[in-house]
Each structure stands twice: as structure tokens, then as C-alpha cells.
């Protein structure tokens, strides 16, 4: 009996140690996976932002070039300067959204460091710094106009995430303090990419229309031999049609990122959630790459 009584605590301690070690490893893995997914998201979202910037410039270019004969020569300089200024303004806000995504990723990395660190002060300070920078940047984005909508009007409602127990006081404190604010910042990304997607579709469509008329339809309708690249041009045009229709993939990835963050905070960010998030991020990157290739 005495041996059993003495033996029980040994087994119990071993079991508890095993559970604690396993829980600790799972926690570190969850936050590490999420930070890594955040990095992938940022890279993919930057590709979309690049596409949006290039598309707005090129749509403006084809419009100006095609319709230049209608501008009297004495007005052309003023006309080009006006369009340059307007496009520069648009590109500034896209860069702000890019910076916002990078700051979010810095925050996710700081959370991962907090989850796995024995000395969390540095990680907590990094999270604090990233959050402070986000707070300075986001008001400008909220009030920005991108495409056909004000970003602020597209922000979805966010409910306060439920913070699970992670057995790391600094991590739990950080999540209690800021998880709702961070969920709102991710919602801002979602709104920004909804607006970007709308503008991107218009700019791509303007380019494709001009391409279809000048490189596909007019050569085909004209007398004479078709240009050697005609078949390739037509194929490129038709392939791009489907890609343009998928320009909303970035907003879907941002939406999943927010849901994943809420799962992470609630200690429910499992392998299936990670796979789903990565699937959406990869879809965003895939569309962005196809658009970049087709532009």
C-alpha cells in the first residue's frame, strides 16, 4: 500500500510533466504556425498590392494613349500632370496597406516568441511596438478610398475573441489586452483588400477591353493575314477573363486570417485550420501571380 501511495505521485508527476510538455509544444507550434502563415499572407498580399498599383497605372496609360488625339497639344502637359498626381495619391494608400500588413506580421511573430519564450520581456516589448505602429497607421487606412469604396465602410463587425488559458502569463496578458484590437486590425486588412479587389477588377477590365479590341478583334476583322501572335494574344485574353473574376481572393484570405487568429487566441488553431488558411493564402498568391503574368 505504501509503495502504491509512494508510486502514485511519481506516475502522476510523469503524466503531468508529459501533459505540460505536450501542451507547451502544441502552444509553441500553434503560435509558430500562425506567425509563419502570417508571413506567407503578407508576401501574397504584397503581390496583390503590386498588381493593384500596376493595374491602375496601366489602365490609365491605355486610356491616355488611346485617347490622346482628343487632347489639344496645348493642354497635354496639364493633362498628364493631373493624371500623374492623381495616381501618386492612389499609390500612397496602397503602400500604407502594405506597411499595415507587415506590422501585423511583426505582431504575430512577437506572439509566437511570447508563446515559446522563457524570458518574454523582449517579445512583449516587440508586440507592444508593433501594436503602437499599427495604431498610428490604421486610422489613415480606415478613412482611405481605394477603388470604388471607402475602406472604413467595408470593415466587418468583430466580436471580442475568447482568450484561452495558455499557462504563460505574459502571453495571456497580451491576448487579453489586445486580441480584440488585433482582430479589428485584421478586419481592416479584409476591408482594404475588398476595396482593392473592386478597383483592380475595373483597371484590369479596362486593359483587357483595349487589348481585346486592338490585338484580337480588329486584326481578325481586318483584311489580310493575321499577325503571328494573334492566337497567343487571344488565348491570353480569354485566360485572363477567369483570373479577373477571382480578384476577390485577397479579401477571402484576410477573412480567413481573422477567423484563424480568433481560433488561435481560443487555443483552437489546429492543423485543419492552418491548412485552410494556407489554402486561401495560396489562392490569393496564385491569382496575384496570374494577374502579374497577364498584365
Amino acid at each position: 500500500m505504501k509503495r502504491v501511495i509512494r508510486g502514485f505521485p511519481v506516475i502522476a508527476v510523469a503524466l503531468i510533466l508529459g501533459i505540460v510538455t505536450s501542451a507547451c509544444a502544441a502552444r509553441i507550434t500553434q503560435f509558430g504556425d500562425f506567425a509563419q502563415a502570417g508571413l506567407t499572407y503578407v508576401k501574397a498580399s504584397e503581390a496583390v498590392i503590386d498588381d493593384a498599383g500596376v493595374a491602375s497605372i496601366r489602365a490609365n496609360n491605355v486610356t491616355l494613349v488611346k485617347n490622346r488625339p482628343a487632347i489639344p497639344p496645348e493642354n497635354r502637359l496639364a493633362e498628364i500632370n493631373t493624371h500623374n498626381d492623381l495616381l501618386k495619391e492612389r499609390l500612397v494608400i496602397l503602400q500604407d496597406i502594405r506597411r499595415h500588413g507587415r506590422l501585423l506580421q511583426r505582431y504575430f511573430q512577437a506572439l509566437a516568441d511570447l508563446a515559446g519564450s522563457d524570458a518574454p520581456q523582449a517579445a512583449a516589448a516587440a508586440a507592444d511596438g508593433a501594436f503602437a505602429s499599427l495604431s498610428k497607421l490604421s486610422p489613415g487606412i480606415k478613412t482611405a478610398k481605394v477603388g470604388a469604396a471607402s475602406v472604413g465602410n467595408l470593415i466587418p463587425a468583430v466580436t471580442k475573441p475568447i482568450v484561452a488559458s495558455f499557462k504563460v502569463r505574459a502571453l495571456e496578458r497580451e491576448l487579453e489586452l489586445r486580441s480584440e484590437a488585433i482582430a479589428n486590425e485584421i478586419a481592416l486588412q479584409e476591408a482594404a483588400f475588398t476595396a482593392i479587389g473592386q478597383g483592380l477588377v475595373t483597371d484590369l477590365q479596362v486593359q483587357m477591353n483595349t487589348f481585346e479590341t486592338e490585338q484580337v478583334n480588329n486584326p481578325f476583322a481586318a483584311d489580310g493575314v493575321l499577325p503571328g501572335n494573334w492566337v497567343g494574344n487571344r488565348e491570353q485574353l480569354l485566360k485572363m477573363t477567369g483570373t479577373v473574376a477571382s480578384a476577390g481572393a485577397a479579401a477571402a484570405a484576410a477573412r480567413n486570417l481573422r477567423a484563424s487568429f480568433e481560433s488561435l487566441v481560443n487555443n483552437r488553431f489546429d492543423r485543419a485550420a492552418l491548412d485552410s488558411l494556407l489554402l486561401d493564402i495560396n489562392a490569393m498568391l496564385d491569382i496575384a501571380t496570374k494577374i502579374a503574368e497577364g498584365l
Binding site: 493631373t82 498626381d85 492623381l86 495619391e89 492612389r90 500612397v92 494608400i93 489613415g140 478613412t143 482611405a144 478610398k145 471607402s150 472604413g152
Partner: peptide, 10 residues
């Protein structure tokens, strides 16, 4: 252009 503003303050 109506001005050099890049953002909307609603």
C-alpha cells in the same frame, strides 16, 4: 484635380 488628398475623412 480637386486637391492632393489621398484619404477620405468621413
Amino acid at each position: 484635380s480637386s486637391g492632393p488628398m489621398a484619404v477620405v475623412r468621413e
